[in-house]
């Protein structure tokens, strides 16, 4: 009898949190190239592109979250997790979104982790402290404050920014890349298309750029007090007779792409992949 009672209590305790959550399963028809936006605070959001002209959202909402608001038309669909005003511990929204692969997708979160893959249209992601991981085929703009930003196999145009979050990009070929942090370290592994432009800026983060030996680019690397190391041979020299600045300027191959790297105190490593 006592064992049965304990078993019942355990069941209640285990089931209660689940019961307190709200289940979400919503589908909307949209155009294949629609704009889809998401706004949330905490939890996890996993977005994947599919070949249907519809958006499907599944998952759970925390106990005190009001609802998932879905508004818009077949051209633009806005998804927003609605919280009571001044609610600081409302629970997480853990959601999975399926969106048309050709859509333009935008998401903004506070601490929620964002993961996105399979979207060929433009992608715009923003988070404060959430971890952002992207594997998309279209052009990408992503921004975090302290959350790490990981880009894998994104499209040919990438604009990525953090304050202190680490920034890592492994992109097959870049045509237009802008990477910027204040203190976050930056790692980029890529090849550069002819006439590509790659600009990397950080105040105190370290920069590691890995490109193939066959790259055709004109490099301009400058640091005020950080060390510059170049596996391609040419070494940095002082940019001023009086100041502590260093610069490394050289070209490889046809030099049609251009690479600019600027730091204040962050070290720069240029490596051959």
């Amino acid at each position: 009898m006592r064992n049965t009672f304990i078993a019942m209590m355990c069941t209640v305790v285990l089931v209660l949190p689940v019961a307190a959550q709200q289940r979400v399963d919503e589908t909307r028809q949209v155009a294949a190239d629609a704009v889809v936006t998401f706004e949330g605070v905490s939890g996890t959001v996993v977005v994947s592109g599919w070949d249907r002209a519809e958006v499907r959202v599944t998952g759970t909402l925390g106990r005190r979250i009001e609802k998932l608001e879905i508004t818009g038309s077949d051209q633009r669909l806005d998804l927003r997790v609605v919280y009571p005003r001044n609610c600081h511990d409302c629970g997480d929204a853990d959601l999975e979104l399926k969106v048309p692969a050709g859509c333009r997708f935008e998401a903004e979160t506070v601490s929620a982790d964002l993961e996105l893959g399979g979207v060929r249209g433009e992608v715009w992601l923003k988070s404060v402290s959430g971890r952002v991981r992207v594997a998309a085929g279209g052009s990408l703009r992503a921004k975090t404050v302290s959350g790490p930003l990981v880009i894998r196999g994104a499209g040919r145009a990438v604009n990525a920014t953090t304050v202190s979050g680490a920034l890592s990009a492994d992109v097959a070929v870049l045509e237009d890349g802008e990477f910027e942090t204040v203190s976050g370290d930056i790692e980029i592994d890529t090849d550069l298309a002819p006439k590509a432009r790659l600009e990397v800026k950080t105040v105190s983060g370290s920069v590691e750029l890995r490109v193939p030996a066959s790259v055709g680019a004109d490099f301009e690397i400058e640091s005020f007090s950080g060390r510059i190391r170049n596996q391609f041979g040419q070494q940095a020299r002082r940019s001023s007779k009086y100041g502590p600045g260093y610069e490394l300027l050289f070209a490889r191959g046809d030099g049609s792409a251009r690479v600019f790297i600027k730091t204040l105190s962050g070290s720069v490593r240029l490596l051959e992949k």
Binding site: D218, F219, E220, E222, E247, L249, F250, A251, G255, S256
Partner: peptide, 13 residues
């Protein structure tokens, strides 16, 4: 650079 690819190298930007 205004004089072709790589002309800036070594010249100081």
């Amino acid at each position: 650079e205004t004089t072709g690819v790589g002309a800036r190298s070594g010249a100081g930007a």
